[in-house]
Design a protein around this nucleic acid. Structure first.
Lengths: 233, 233
DNA sequence: ATTGTTTTCGAACAAGGGTCAAATATATTA
DNA sequence: TAATATATTTGACCCTTGTTCGAAAACAAT
């Protein structure tokens, strides 16, 4: 069995797993399910993957692949301002989160794990070796790649004047990213907000986008406009 | 055994559970652990709590209690601008997230759950009854309370001039909250950013805060202030 | 004292993740 | 080709752990 076929088989199993994770969630998916779905014995899945978490990490890698694609795809079309890029990225990021829930979940879980290992207290206990693992380093790198592309977009914006020149691209982009992560998280509760509340999905999304753009370009532009308006009276 | 004593006992168990969740994490904590730690039999824990998740939800309620306190505590001191309040809230929110990891984790998990049930596809499968459960409704309400206090702060800010008057308080506050959630999530990876990267924890935190404030007050205020400062020279 | 109710326990069940020795298939060598 | 080494595959089995349940113990009411 060549390397070719081995990877083929791995992919079969992983695909089955992802399908099941998507349908029933990670916890509710048993290794038996995966094996059955891939038409092999349970034991064999442990031949190709160390354990259930390993399967999840493999999926996480695919998730980051797709996420990176989202970033790259937006970055590709350079015939517009940096702010436009960021705006489109924001839209596509949310689309990605919605469209590939398990993938997005995997990405967030990874961020959570990293965060966990920053805690002195917890680093010892749970599983001290993950941080060094290949998986982990690779994922961290992919995350970093995304951030780099995003920062590039902001950098372009500062040059073409669509984004405040004084902003540090990395800092600004990480902040934008933070907004997106939080937006997606709060989306749920907002949908369940009682009817009498002023915030609703329909009002939040455009409001959020506006604020995001304001933050990047500043209200500086508005100031230039305002005097003109005042002078009308 | 009066209601008094029953609640006492419940609290004993819950406290034991929380202690263990904190130390070893939810997954690694067994019901045996909890029982042993509370000095009762395993079966009895199921008399007081429906199951392990019920225990977690009980903890989530306490988590939201504390979170609400964070909001209230900041809101209490009214002798300052709305923007100052939001700034302090941001600091305390992050402090809370760091200081009470499991509590914060529980809050985020809850948001995740809500989000899950917005998905047509998933709502059917996993557990269709949680949404209607008392727990769930109560938690949603507590979340909503926090949002209301936060929006109040922004509203104050729009009145005292520290925050752009044209902002919708609810929209603006939810956006701030989103930023905080994302900030905390991205904290981990940022700490692990390779040394050659421009973003580091030390640069991000102040940069983030600055952007948050810029977003709320716009650069408009800065324009008003600047002339005064300039005239000093 | 007797009966009913609440609390408590510990044994047992079932599900599921993970292991392993043996069997089967495949490749290599003589 | 036969024999041997290696790689793949299986299914039975172990072990942990969440959860259930019947019965004992403690307590309250009659």
């Amino acid at each position: 069995m060549g390397v070719q076929e081995r990877q083929q088989k791995e992919k079969m199993i992983l695909d089955a797993a992802i399908r099941l994770f998507t349908e029933k969630g990670f916890a509710a998916t048993t290794m038996d399910d995966v094996a059955k779905s891939a038409k092999i014995s349970k034991g064999l899945t442990y031949f190709y993957f160390k354990n259930k978490e390993d399967l999840y990490l493999a999926m996480t890698k695919k998730a980051f692949d797709e996420l990176k694609d989202v970033f790259r795809e937006v970055y590709k079309n350079k015939a517009r301002t940096g702010l436009d890029m960021i705006t489109e990225l924001a839209n596509n990021y949310v689309k990605f989160a919605r469209g590939s829930r398990i993938y997005y979940q995997a990405v967030l879980d990874f961020l959570g794990t990293v965060q966990l290992y920053n805690d002195e207290h917890l680093r010892q206990k749970i599983n001290p070796l993950i941080l060094q693992s290949e998986h982990f380093q690779k994922l961290l790198e992919m995350h970093h790649d995304c951030a780099k592309i995003g920062a590039q977009m902001v950098a372009l914006g500062t040059k073409d004047g669509s984004i405040r020149a004084e902003l540090n691209p990395e800092v600004a982009f990480y902040t934008v990213w933070a907004m997106l992560i939080g937006f997606e998280k709060l989306m749920g509760p907002v949908s369940y907000e009682p009817k009498d509340t002023k915030i609703q999905l329909e009002t939040w999304k455009p409001g959020f986008t506006k604020l995001l753009q304001d933050m990047l370009k500043g209200t500086f532009q508005a100031v230039k406009v305002q005097p003109v308006q005042t002078s009308l009276f």
